[in-house]
Amino acid sequence: MQSLILRTATRLLVSLILVFSIYLLFSGHNSPGGGFSGALVAATGFALYTIAEGPASVRRAIRIDPRRLIVFGLALALASGLAAVFAGKPFLTGLWWTVAELPDYTLVLGTPFFFDVGVYAIVLGTILTIILALEES
């Protein structure tokens, strides 16, 4: 679709949308958001980009095949679950590490976060796979 307004607006919007998507992914554990909604936001961004610039430029921009993103996500989610097995706990039990002791706050990182990143990758990869295939057909 050759619309100057859409293309110019898209350039501005897509980067904002993607930043917001990453923000949702990271903040999801304590405020609304999470891997699933983060991935949906990113997918809307890419859908917008697809409509404005065409699927070829989206493929160039994301560099990796979205199908690989699905595989990566599945592998990461499984690995985050298996980590607990190697630590001698039931599959998918959350393991937590303290990253930093701040004066009024303790920053922790755990396997559920990586699980969430896996969800993010799968959902984004799936939607991108479908959207790009549809646009290219």
Partner: peptide, 21 residues
């Protein structure tokens, strides 16, 4: 236990992560 204030997300990625998987 799960270090999260957003219960919905904690359920998704920790308490019920088998379902999510």
């Amino acid at each position: 236990v799960a270090h999260g204030k957003n219960i919905v997300n904690v359920i998704l990625v920790d308490f019920r992560s088998m379902d999510t998987l």
